[in-house]
Design a binder for these strands. Structure first.
Lengths: 329, 329
DNA sequence: CGCACACCTGAGAGCGCTCTCACGGCAACC
DNA sequence: GGTTGCCGTGAGAGCGCTCTCAGGTGTGCG
């Protein structure tokens, strides 16, 4: 019968049951300060018997530092929903946090709403924060009180260190691969405009086009498969002689392939398709998708660790992305 | 300059700035009790100017009821990771909670560890809880203090109402479709054994097999694509004359298709493949995947609402799943 | 004019916890 | 034997907030 009667047991109850003062009980429970072995045992036994669990709210209130790491996702979920990106971020964060006794909480942040971020920042239960898919307005709204306890997966700011995939380099590798295999009229389906990483791959694309004298054929995307299919149609209409399509995400690339096939094009025969992210399905699609790796878990783990050990971090940490050539390009 | 100097503003600060007592300031901020228009304005102005945000920890402590809805996921993440299931649950929960001013937090629960659940239950910051992928041991460990504030997406218990997809009926529809199109040697790749929903589809499968006099060919799966590919190999080896494979998840089904193709089988020519979930990629794969709908968002929203309005709920609420015939079967 | 009743307001207790501080006891040292 | 220091302990303040309660002011009505 470890279950308490009605009201959950408080430290006071434990102290009374153990015949010590609340202070001593607190010291034993929180493993802070010193206590005699006898007192320690009695308190531990009482706590166990009463099913005592410290109240995180009270603890956070007085300690001023909480027991949770907040993962704050910026923007609507629609764009992120199609591939299991967020799951992996949260899973990695949880893996890093659990040994520290920290819980992970997930929050949605509207793209332009500093007060939501302030609300979050005011929560003493929150030890630190990892921003995902963040934007400049949001970064600018990071309150001073959060400085040094927040990192960003994606773009950063002078006060918020950034952890991200080097998708400029990744995109370049993929594009060079397309070029090396003879493709000369390469279209690109971008990521959402407001996302920084989208910008980097686009720059890589433009750079290579300029360098090699290739045409620039950009179609906006949003990382979803549905948009990929539509983008394929768009590309075929606007530039019928396109011989390769590079999509900023694998999910989009799979959509592109579906769209092309729907219009009777062979992949990679008529048109090569490459993506980015190396999602589990990339290997299993038909044809297997050529893509670039995106170690989300590693990045998220590094970002989380940076929050937990706030030592001076470089403003931007980029993780390498490697070409994974398969059958689609 | 809404940013406070160093220490975040407290209600005391606001009250002082507005020239009222803390009590009055609290009434205005919390919109409880009455206050004169003049006082109301002055407090609002002061709060705004100081960038005041109420401390959720303190509030939860005194109110005894929190500002967060906990989504607790049971088990390792590996199995859930391959398809964006959790994202959709959390997104739906967030959509329902936001109008109520509630945040959503995500927690991982080990499959057999009641104390983690107790820890969570002790958190006054948590108003209610939605269990995902839960198991019987976890349900049994739900402490009394949480009764009436917790629901489960998946299996339930006498004290925890369940919200789930009727995947027994869904599976039956898919299997009948396979049967109706002439398939007689149907193998099935199941979900993880510890997951209840897996059990229901398996029962549907066994039921139909018995009824129609079909052989039973079960291979364990875990909802991942990789396992699907492996399962396909296994099935071909053990029962080479199999003419249809039903996978308990679309992701697995896509893996199965990849596995079959790898071994030179045509889908649906040689072997029909059907899945379950109707993920976005199902429509885009080649061939387009025959599957059954799984309105995760609707289910999660209903479950969340049930937590927020704790009226007597039926012990189990099943949501219908409909066959979506496409090209793979 | 007096009384009842509304409405607004501030004082203050207290949510469950941590942590500082002071105190008593005990060992060690000169 | 006195001083110093340390260890274990309990009293008590206080984290930021809500909420009860009592008081004070204004209005309506007899």
């Amino acid at each position: 019968m470890t279950a308490p009667a009605t009201r959950p047991a408080t430290l006071e109850d434990v102290a009374r049951a153990a015949g010590v003062s609340r202070s001593t009980a607190s010291r034993v429970i929180a493993r802070t300060g010193s206590a005699s072995p006898a007192a320690r045992d009695r308190v531990a036994a009482a706590a166990d018997q009463l099913g005592y669990v410290p109240d995180p709210a009270a603890r956070a209130l007085v300690r001023g530092s909480g027991v949770r790491l907040a993962v704050a996702v910026v923007g609507t979920t629609a764009a992120v929903l199609d591939d299991p990106y967020l799951d992996r971020v949260v899973a990695a964060a949880a893996r890093v946090c659990t040994p520290h006794g920290l819980g992970v909480t997930l929050h949605w942040l509207p793209r332009h709403a500093p007060q939501t971020l302030r609300r979050l920042a005011a929560d003493r239960g929150i030890r630190g924060m990892v921003l995902v898919n963040t934007t400049k307005p949001v970064l600018d709204a990071v309150p001073r009180s959060l400085r040094g306890r927040v990192v960003s997966i994606g773009i950063g700011s002078p006060t918020v260190p950034a952890y991200d995939i080097d998708n400029g380099a990744g995109a370049t590798q993929v594009l060079r691969h397309l070029y090396a295999t003879g493709r000369r009229r390469i279209a690109m389906v971008t990521g959402p405009r407001w996302l920084m990483c989208a910008g980097r791959s686009v720059r890589a694309y433009r750079g290579l086009a300029r360098e090699a004298g290739l045409p620039v054929r950009l179609v906006p995307g949003d990382f979803t498969a549905a948009r990929g299919r539509e983008a394929a149609r768009e590309i075929l209409e606007r530039w019928p002689d396109t011989d390769a399509i590079y999509a900023a995400s694998d999910t989009t690339a799979l959509g592109v392939i579906a769209g092309l096939r729907q219009r009777g094009r062979q992949v990679p025969g008529d048109i090569a398709v490459a993506g980015f992210d190396d999602i589990p399905l990339a290997e299993l699609s038909t044809p297997a998708l050529t893509t670039a790796s995106h170690p989300v878990g590693v990045i998220a783990a590094a970002a989380t660790e940076a929050v937990l050990e706030p030592r001076p971090a470089p403003p931007v940490t980029l993780f390498p992305s490697a070409l994974i050539p398969r059958d689609s390009a």
